[in-house]
Structure formats: structure tokens, C-alpha cells
Write a protein that binds this DNA or RNA. Structure first.
Lengths: 351, 351
DNA sequence: TCCCCCTGAGAAAACCTTTTCCCAATCCGC
DNA sequence: GCGGATTGGGAAAAGGTTTTCTCAGGGGGA
């Protein structure tokens, strides 16, 4: 009467026992044949293999894991629901693990300790081999303690427990790349517009900004801090170009290093609205290299990329080696950023 | 010599056998006590429970799954690596499943058939209870066949196999919401700027656009199709406002319905650069409700939200019921969009 | 007093695979 | 032809839990 319904066709997977029975051997022999273990005639081995092949036998990971005490599964904990940070990071993690046959449980815990504990417990019950914690901020802890779980934990782009291993971006290094790029291009009055003072990275980048300027004998303007928004980029331009100018000299900046791409977007738009040419009069560099933003600014935005996918890869590989029993020193590893040059900085004066 | 290293502390989980031994009962009784099965004195039951509690006993999911033939695990397949579509969708799926104690394997398959098959095989080996497939386009297939896997599959925001269950956004309905909103506000000359003709949603939305205009006796301008980019929004404004005008009347549009938020952003920026007021002279509505874009436009963008999290939830619940053995009719379910009103449309003329 | 039924709890099979040990048969050298 | 080594393969335990079956003892009815 009703049309097609769809309860599972229930195609039972074939077990090793069936393979063995059909090949006329014991399960022990079948197992050894398929795993290249044990001794038997080449004929027996190939007969078993062929039978397994024909029947579409695939070993039950659950049974294997139970025996081996290793589930080839890890948990990835994040609180970055909609974030552009965790996605590339996850892709990197997954990429590092897939080759080892390891699958990833994705758990979004928002910022809810109860939810986090729920997910961690579920992962523990499912006997994950390890956990990777990641977040949207380097200087914030996930709302759960991963220290004494009995399985290794790696932190990526989030604040680690003491005595754990963490991978984070080298924000100071990234800022250096940007400011040094400006210096090489002959910019002399370089401003810095960044995010809220409550973010650790804001200070790390600002410090590097100051250092590079000092090394190059250039004047330092106190960094302008505000929200991570386009609107703040606009406002900052107003302050920079309506204010009393650089270093008391009444000169206006010829470069702006921004704390993220959204601020940079606001800065570029505001400059254009004031009739100030980018990159001719003012160069702009962003941070995050959020492609969809960086490529939509006019001109396209030069930006610092934190190499999050690489960071995820490293975290995945580190976890793998920890799971494999190899010891490793705890600590925070900083991975280098890279500068993605587009068109918002111009070429060297002699270029 | 070297400082602290960190090979796993190897805190072995406690097993049911140990609980039983310590409580002085058999494993069978212990199991039944903890699961509320079997018959025993209340005293025995509570003694066992207390022992388990004290020892921190947590049943090994692997062993349970092996026996029950149900892993409380599902696979989520996506090809939307960096996408803003899959994240809310995943959050919805995860949200629907976490309450049932089901964990989610996240597998990003890019568009690589080999990688997709690899992940599907891994999921099958790990005995997932079902698979949810999702992608970045409603009208594209994932590069793998999920039809005869022996486990249920649900499709969300991607093209399903025939005879499968799929959840997609109601793009036509969403477009209606937008255009009808314009009509209610008294806009009379409504243009439509959308994405490439190769996208099915572009046609669905354009068709709804035409219908609503016809229903309201308003002139229809042939939709302008181009890339999903800000630059195309700029270009479209040029064509709309430099061209010969609306319906041959030389009148310019007083509203633009855009195929996504990036195009809308370009449109709004271009209008402002021409000195055309938004929303006073021209109203603009976007699609996707990509918050970070919609809130950064000036003025903030009214946009159609596809309710992707809800869509993910529905998909998760549907999979759960399929896994539970309940039959369901195959077919494509369209879930309604909603209009998120911000400030790019203005108020009703009499408002 | 006898029988039956019920209660409380344990033994064992089952889930599926791996691995260790073991055994029978064959082969070799002498 | 005999002792020992080698070869090919199987039996069984292990991993942790659930579930069915079994069983001993006690209580109640006739």
C-alpha cells in the first residue's frame, strides 16, 4: 500500500569464522593467513585470502580493539563551534591520522563544563587512544581537565594543562614577518591596530611589533586596541589619520599592521573612503589569512597565515607517537607563521 | 637527566570482573545489578552499585558494542573542508545524537573518491550504526556510494542516492520570504542577483523570485547570474544602475535580493560608493545569514537563514530512528528557512 | 510430609579476533 | 630404521560485557 520504506537491509557482515569454514580451515589459521602470520603452505594462504576477498570479509574493529587494547580512534575536543580556526586544524589532524587508520571523534563542547565532561566520558568509554584539545583561543582552557585520564592528551591552539604537550602558532614570529615586510618595503611609520587587551596574542604581537621597529630605528606608535571587528578598523583609521599623528611629528602612518583580517578589512575600506591609496600611500597587512576576507578586500590583503592545518598535523602526529608509547618532553611548541603576500603592501621602492 | 617525560601513566580502567570480585559476587550478578536487570536483594544490588561507584567503574563500550552489535557511533561524511555550511550542520547533528550517547566520527573526504572510500571502509570496520552525508552543495553527490552498505544513511544538504532520505533547505521558500518581505515593505522594483547557473539553488530561488513578483503584479527583471563573490555584487550594481533600467521604464531598482551574503555585501558597498542610500533608496537582502558578514555590512544585512543546525538535528534524529529499526519513507524533506531582519531593508512606508 | 514454585545468584555461552601453545606428520642425517 | 628437527595447522585462552540457562534453597499449599 505505502511505497518503499527503508528499514536497514540488514546485510550482516561476514565473520572470520565463516571465511575459515568455507576455506576449510580453523579460524586461527584463517587469521594468520590474512595477517601474514604463522606458517602454512602458500596454497593454503592464498586460498584463504581469496575466500576472504570473495566474501568481502572485513575484520571487526571492535573485536580487534578489545583484544589489542587500542581502538585506533582519538577524540577531538573543541569549543569553536562556528570557527574558522578549528576547521583547518581539524583537517590537519584528520589528515595526519587517516594514514595510520585512526578515526576522529569530533566533540563540540561549546563552553559548557557539563557537556565537556559528558563527551570526555563518552570518549573514555569508547576507549579512544588519546585526545586532542583545541579551541578558539590560545590563552583559554577548555572547560574540562584532561590531565589524569590515563590516556595521552595533546593541545593545539588552546591553553594546555601543565606538563602537557601543546602546539600553538608563533604569534610573535608572525608579527615580525609582517612588520619586517613593511620595513623591507621602505615603510617608515608603521601603526598597529589589534584586538582586545584581554587576548594574550594581542600582547605577543604588539611586543614583536615594538621590537622590530626598535631594531630598525623606527618610531613606535602605541598599538590601538579594540574589538576584532571591521568597525574597529574604521574607527582606528579615524584615530590614526585625524589624530595628532605619528610620534608627535604630525606625520600620518604609511603602513598599518592589523591584528586580524576583519580589522584590516575595515582599515582598507576606511582608507579608501578617505581617498587614501592602498598600497600606494598606506600599506596594510592582516592576520589569520582568512582567505574569503583577504581575497575580497580591495586590493586583496597581504596577511599572516598561522598554518593551522600544519599545526593540526603536528598535533596528530605527536599524539600518535605518544600513543605508540614513545616518550616526549612536555612543553609548548610554537610553529612558525607565514606571510601570504597579496597586493595591499605594494612593491619595494626600487622594485 | 632530562626532565619530565610523558609516556602514558597507564592507569588501567577497572573492569566488571574486578567490581564483582570486590563486591563478592559473580560478573553476571554484577552486570545485572548495574543494568537494573535480573533479580537480587536490594542490599546486594546497592552494594554492587556502590562498589562500582567507588572504583570508578565504566563499562567498556567496545565489549558492549561487540555483543549488542550496535556501536553507538555514527559517521559524518563531508566534503566541505573549510565551509561555513558544514559546521552548523555538524553542531546540529552532534547535538541531536549526544543525548542518545552516540558519538560522531568526522570524516572529511574533500572530493577525492579514494579518500572517501577509505573513510567509509574505516567506518564500516568500526561498525558505525549509520552514516550521515553532508556537503557544500545540495546538487552534488559525495564521491562515494552509500546505498548498499548494510547500514542506514541519511543525507543532509547534499544530493541523496535514490531511495534514500535527505534533508535540504527549502531554497524556494527562503527566496519567497525575502521577496515577500520586500513586497510588504512597499518595494516595487525588485532585482535579483545570484550565483552561477550551474547551481540548482540558483534556479530554485530565481523561480520563487519570479513567482512572488508575478503574484504581486510587479515587474520581473531577469536575474543576474555570476560568481558567488563580492566583486560580482559590485559588477551587478553597475549593470543594474548604469543599464537601461527596470522593465524598459528606465526606473532603477528599489530592492535587490542577493543569492548570498557576499554578493549582498558587494551590492551594499557598491551602492554606498554611488551615494545610493541603503535602505532608504534601495533595500538589500542576502542569503545564508553568514553572521560575520551580515553584521559587518553597513547597514547590517537582512538575510535568509537556512537553519542548518536544525537541519543537522533533523538528520541526526532521522538516523537514530532508522538505526532503531523504525521504517521511514524515502524522499527529500525540505526544511523551512527563516528571514533574519536587520537594517538593510527599512521599515514599512507607513511604519 | 510432599511437591511445586519462587527467589536469589552463579555458570557459561556469545560477540569476533588474535596469539600462544601444542600436536601430528614429515623430513633429514646417520 | 631411528631420533630429532621442522612443517602445517589446530585448540584454546584472552579481551569485557550481556544474557540465557541452571541450580540450590526456602516458602507455601495440599
Amino acid at each position: 500500500m505505502a511505497s518503499d520504506v527503508q528499514p536497514t537491509p540488514a546485510k550482516q557482515p561476514v565473520t572470520l569464522r565463516e571465511v575459515a569454514a568455507i576455506a576449510g580451515v580453523s579460524v586461527a589459521t584463517a587469521s594468520k593467513a590474512l595477517n601474514g602470520q604463522g606458517r602454512m603452505t602458500a596454497e593454503t594462504r592464498s586460498r584463504i585470502r581469496e575466500t576472504a576477498q570473495r566474501l568481502g570479509f572485513r575484520p571487526n574493529s571492535l573485536a580487534q580493539s578489545l583484544l589489542r587494547r587500542r581502538s585506533f580512534t582519538v577524540g577531538l575536543l573543541t569549543n569553536d563551534t562556528y570557527g574558522r580556526f578549528s576547521l583547518p586544524l581539524m583537517a590537519g589532524v584528520s589528515d595526519a591520522l587517516v594514514d595510520a587508520g585512526v578515526s576522529v571523534f569530533l566533540c563540540n563542547v561549546e563552553d559548557d563544563p557539563r557537556l565537556a565532561q559528558l563527551h570526555v566520558d563518552a570518549m573514555l568509554d569508547k576507549r579512544v587512544d588519546g585526545i586532542i584539545a583545541t579551541g578558539k583561543r590560545i590563552d583559554r582552557h577548555l572547560p574540562v581537565d584532561l590531565a589524569n585520564l590515563g590516556i595521552p592528551a595533546i593541545y593545539a591552539f588552546t591553553e594546555p594543562d601543565p606538563n602537557a604537550i601543546a602546539f600553538v602558532s608563533d604569534d610573535a614570529g608572525g608579527a615580525r614577518l609582517a612588520v619586517e615586510h613593511f620595513c623591507r618595503l621602505g615603510r617608515r611609520r608603521i601603526a598597529h591596530v589589534s584586538g582586545p587587551a584581554s587576548f594574550a596574542v594581542v600582547h605577543a604581537r604588539a611586543e614583536a611589533y615594538r621590537e622590530v621597529l626598535a631594531e630598525n630605528g623606527l618610531p613606535v606608535l602605541e598599538p590601538l586596541l579594540g574589538p576584532w571587528s571591521e568597525a574597529w578598523g574604521h574607527e582606528a583609521v579615524r584615530r590614526l589619520f585625524d589624530g595628532e599623528g605619528f610620534d608627535g611629528t604630525r606625520e600620518k602612518p604609511d603602513a598599518v599592521f592589523c591584528g586580524n583580517d576583519q580589522i584590516a578589512r575595515g582599515v582598507i575600506d576606511a582608507l579608501r573612503e578617505r581617498g587614501i591609496g592602498v598600497p600606494d600611500e598606506v600599506g596594510v597587512i592582516g592576520f589569520d589569512n582568512w582567505q574569503i576576507v583577504a581575497e575580497a578586500t580591495r586590493p586583496p590583503l597581504t596577511s599572516v597565515d598561522m598554518n593551522l592545518a600544519a599545526l593540526g598535523r603536528e598535533a596528530g602526529l605527536a599524539l600518535l607517537s605518544l600513543v605508540g608509547g614513545e616518550p616526549a618532553l612536555p612543553g609548548i611548541r610554537k610553529l612558525p607563521c607565514r606571510l601570504v603576500v597579496r597586493q595591499s603592501c605594494g612593491r619595494p621602492p626600487d622594485g
